[in-house]
């Protein structure tokens, strides 16, 4: 049973086709990175997986539930699929610890003490145990994003979606966030990561999707090979533009 299956999925905004005929199967434990020029539909694709965007046609199965089926409980899907946002979106009215425990306590009905213990373990994992009682506004971007990852992990999800997790960060803290993501990947988490971090795509990802104009133009199980010799013309052009400084 696959984690995520797209069958002929289309997504329109009015007349604009954001996703064109997407067919994609993601297995458990895969670390999939999605790259491509802006406006290519990467984030839209990601956001359909937990129902933040609804698909216009086709079939989308997440954890074997059809998202278009009105009987599907979206909240149940979201319990199992975490999300990390470009702009962190930590709960501004909650402390760091509460940011992590709120979901488990209110959604999974985990007792407070247990949720707090688990949160402390996760704060240790992301290296921010000393920040537990601060407010999000007191943290730097890099720290916020590590907390956002801990918040997603606290739900013990089956997969985590990352929507450009390092795009809003200062260059010197990107490494800290990527290190945490690498740890999560090493624990066998299914991850789908929209990113501009080609290093991460190459080193940590075990599958790479290149998107352009709402289509998956290249789907590679060997990211290193993709970067060495992209097949798709648009991918060649894209890599040519971003890698010329290296």
């Amino acid at each position: 049973m696959s984690m995520i299956e797209f069958h002929d999925v289309n997504k329109y905004y009015g007349k604009f086709k954001a996703l064109k005929n997407i067919n994609l199967t993601i297995e458990r434990g895969e670390v999939v990175t999605i790259i491509g020029p802006s406006g290519s539909g990467k984030s839209t694709l990601l956001r359909t997986i937990n129902g933040l965007e609804l698909i216009s046609s086709g079939q989308l199965l997440v954890d074997n539930h059809d998202l278009a089926d009105p009987k599907t409980d979206m909240n149940r899907i979201r319990k199992n699929v975490g999300m990390v946002f470009q702009h962190f979106n930590l709960y501004a009215n909650k402390t760091i610890l509460q940011n992590i425990t709120l979901g488990p306590e209110k959604v999974l009905k985990v007792p407070h003490v247990k949720a707090a213990e688990d949160a402390e373990r996760l704060l240790g994992l992301v290296g921010l145990l000393d920040q537990a009682h601060k407010l999000p506004s007191m943290l730097s971007g890099g720290q916020k994003q590590r907390i956002a990852i801990a918040r997603a992990l606290a739900m013990h999800p089956k997969a985590i979606l990352f929507d450009e997790p390092t795009s809003a960060l200062d260059p010197e803290v990107i490494g800290d966030v990527l290190d945490v993501m690498k740890k999560v990947a090493e624990q066998g988490m299914t991850m789908i990561v929209v990113t501009h971090e080609m290093g991460f795509a190459k080193e940590v990802g075990n599958r790479l999707l290149f998107m352009a104009d709402g289509e998956i133009r290249e789907d590679s199980n060997d990211p290193r090979e993709f970067f060495r010799a992209p097949q798709d013309e648009r991918a060649q052009e894209f890599l040519g533009k971003i890698l010329h400084v290296d």
């Binding site: 319990k79 699929v81 979106n89 709960y91 009215n93 979901g103 209110k106 959604v107 918040r151």
Partner: peptide, 29 residues
């Protein structure tokens, strides 16, 4: 911010839970 609602829903909360725990407390302020 819209992101607060998206984060809460992505965290598995229902619309009403997100309102109660995240949106309304911030709106009240």
């Amino acid at each position: 911010a819209v992101g607060q609602m998206e984060a809460a829903r992505s965290n598995g909360m229902t619309y009403l839970q997100a309102m109660k725990y995240i949106i309304l407390p911030q709106a009240t302020k």
